[in-house]
Design a protein around this nucleic acid. Structure first.
Lengths: 192, 192
DNA sequence: ATGAATCGTTCACTTAAGTTAAGAAATGGC
DNA sequence: GCCATTTCTTAACTTAAGTGAACGATTCAT
């Protein structure tokens, strides 16, 4: 498990044994059951999540309806906006599956950052990379139709379509569950 | 003009006179004419832009059609994804109006970062804040209809609706110019 | 100032998503 | 295993966006 983390980190900076030990000693590995709510609307939090195994999602509850806006799977990280903005959360975070997560908090990060400036560089690079990824995702979303977005998802994250409930996928694609169901039926028609 | 920049920076870190001078000496203030293309599809670039005055936009050309995905106005910064990923750009960046821009490049930033660690902290905080802002924007986009998105834009960036051509606004809202035109007519009907 | 190109609106028509409702299928708890 | 709940699909109908085309209005270049 630890190796997975350090392999990931090594893409950004190289750590000494001392630095690795400092991270391990923080005791941030957690097993979390499917359905667990990690963050609720209205709550304040300092926690960030890194998914080692499993899948978590963020969702809003608008007019009593869940609107799923993001999924995070293996090797993906989520720092909720409420953590960055220091405001109550506008959305929920919960586990789509049983998960092994790395859960850190702002204070721990600040401590590590001051001890190891290298770590701050990593965080900056990581934030910038995420910013670029998210920008591309947003642009693709804006410039394509629901059908194209679904096909795009099948290409890029085929696992998601399998492991996540349809109605959650639907709002992730910006449409209603019925529309996703119909859209899929339409695509099957076309193929044959 | 310099004061505008330093007021902005002071939201993240406090700079000494020495540090301010180091920044000014980089000679990064530029006037750019409306219509100027700052970055073309396929180009590699190391340049980032901070808008002191005016408006710039990013757009793709897909099937010969321009798809505008973002606008940056006063006090907003753009680091194109191609700069972060070190890949050829997938989109264009151009000036919607005459602009006064602060144009920096990766090498300059690296130099300043190593001289003043404080600067790297600022970049990290800034990237994180942008990440949170963009996440919220994306979530709002996903969870709302074109009409809601337009009304939302009227609330949050009323200036954009005035200063930017309709057909650019339309793709920014994820629809066709005709649809935006119709949507606006529909809203006027409703009001009366 | 004038002609050319671009831009915004309107219209008729097509296509697809939203809505409401019903029922089948899958899942979870006991 | 069985019931209750949730999830997925289907269908009929409504609403709004996409498409193609036409026509002023505006902008731009010379």
């Amino acid at each position: 498990m630890k190796n997975i983390l350090f392999d990931f980190i090594s893409k950004y900076v190289s750590l000494t044994e001392e630095e690795k030990n400092a991270i391990v000693s923080l005791d941030i590995f957690h097993s979390v059951k499917k359905g667990t709510i990690l963050l609720k609307e209205g709550e304040k939090s300092k926690a960030s999540y890194f998914v080692l195994k499993g899948c978590i999602r963020t969702y809003y509850v608008l007019d009593g309806e869940e609107k799923t806006t993001a999924f995070y799977t293996e090797m993906e990280a989520l720092t909720p906006t409420c953590v960055i903005n220091k405001t109550p959360s506008e959305y929920y975070v919960s586990c789509v599956e049983d998960c092994i997560l790395l859960i850190s908090n702002t204070d721990m990060e600040a401590e590590i950052n001051s001890k190891f400036p290298k770590f701050e560089t990593m965080c900056r690079l990581f934030a910038e990379e995420l910013l670029a990824k998210q920008r591309i995702d947003f642009d693709e979303f804006k410039t394509s139709s629901p059908e194209q977005r679904y096909l795009n998802l099948l290409q890029k994250r085929p696992d998601l379509v399998q492991r996540v409930p349809q109605h959650q996928l639907a709002s992730y694609l910006g449409i209603k569950p019925q529309s996703l169901s119909r859209l899929r039926a339409r695509l099957l028609e076309k193929k044959s």
